[in-house]
Simulated scan of single mutants.
Amino acid sequence: MSHAIADLFSLHGRTAVVTGASSGLGARFALVLASAGASVFAAARRLERLKDLADADPRIHPAVCDVSREEDRVRLMETALDETGRVDVLVNNAGMSGAVRAEDESADDFADVLAVNLVAPFHLARLLAEAPARDRGRTTRSIVNVSSVLGLVSGAPLGGAAYAASKAGLVGLTRELAGQWGPSGVRVNSLAPGWFRSEMTDELFSDERSRRWVERGTMLGRGGEQGELDGALLYLASDASSYCTGHVLTVDGGWTAR
């Protein structure tokens, strides 16, 4: 029985693509999927960091990619398909934050954030859906769109208009693509983390006042720690969630449950 349960979470023989993989949550996601047996194409702009990641696990393949560029997105997916013949898992993790105050954010700035956080995930998801499927039956391809609690509730005085709009848009995109592509065996779900330490949130946790704000608003009284998204990600990526699509899995210590 234990072997059968472990098989539910296995990604042996699968190929995964993870964007924004050069640091923080993305780097961790790549390592988690590789440890589950997947060949992982870790995509980001910073090659040296990707090489360090590949040194940690030979199943990780560095892939230089600026997700804001259409040609880079196409090349990323083509590379994974050419080298392994398949793409089974896509983790749309790359993102940018933008300005916190709406009055400090121009229309062009707003559009730039959406280009990275929403347009790029849509295009990459479409590229996966259009690729030929290698397996039939229960095994399906899985897209995990990394949203945020700020796509579900206001984070004021922190957050940002473009960032919140892009993450809320990812939730809507997740549900719509799940509905359209479910019959063809492509599952689309969203992972919505709460407050986790990363390059993007380093100032938040370094400042005592904002750190206490996080602690007060979280039922567990703290921010998320490294590794506490591992299980949720692996669940959505693997056959353990084979009957789950169009879902937003929130991992936030109770932030949005208040």
Rank of each mutant, 00 (worst) to 15 (best):
S2G: 12
S2K: 13
H3K: 15
L8M: 15
S10H: 09
S10F: 10
H12L: 15
G13E: 09
V18F: 13
T19S: 14
G20F: 12
A21T: 01
S23P: 02
G24Y: 04
G24D: 01
L25S: 01
G26K: 07
R28A: 14
R28G: 04
A30W: 07
L31P: 00
A36L: 14
A36Q: 11
S39M: 12
V40G: 04
F41D: 03
A43H: 02
A43D: 01
A43S: 05
R45M: 13
R46S: 11
L50I: 01
D55L: 15
R59D: 10
H61M: 11
V64L: 04
C65W: 03
D66H: 07
R69W: 05
E71N: 15
R73C: 12
R75L: 14
M77W: 03
E78M: 12
T79K: 15
L81D: 07
L81N: 11
G85I: 05
R86C: 12
D88Q: 08
D88R: 11
V91S: 04
V91M: 10
N92D: 02
M96F: 05
S97R: 15
A99M: 14
A99D: 08
V100A: 15
D104H: 12
S106T: 09
S106L: 11
D108T: 06
D109W: 03
A111D: 13
D112T: 12
L114C: 04
A125N: 06
R126D: 03
L128Y: 02
A131I: 08
A131P: 00
T139R: 15
N145V: 08
L150F: 10
G151T: 02
L152Y: 01
V153S: 08
G155Q: 06
G159E: 02
G160Q: 06
Y163T: 04
Y163E: 04
G169V: 01
E176A: 15
L177V: 03
G182K: 08
G182D: 02
G182W: 05
S184T: 06
G185Q: 10
V188M: 09
V188A: 10
S190T: 01
A192I: 03
A192M: 06
G194N: 07
R197F: 00
S198T: 00
E199C: 05
L204A: 04
E208C: 07
E208Y: 05
R211N: 10
W213E: 08
V214H: 03
E215N: 06
R216P: 00
G221W: 04
R222K: 04
G224N: 09
E228H: 05
L234H: 03
Y243R: 10
V248S: 09
D252E: 04
W255T: 06
T256R: 13
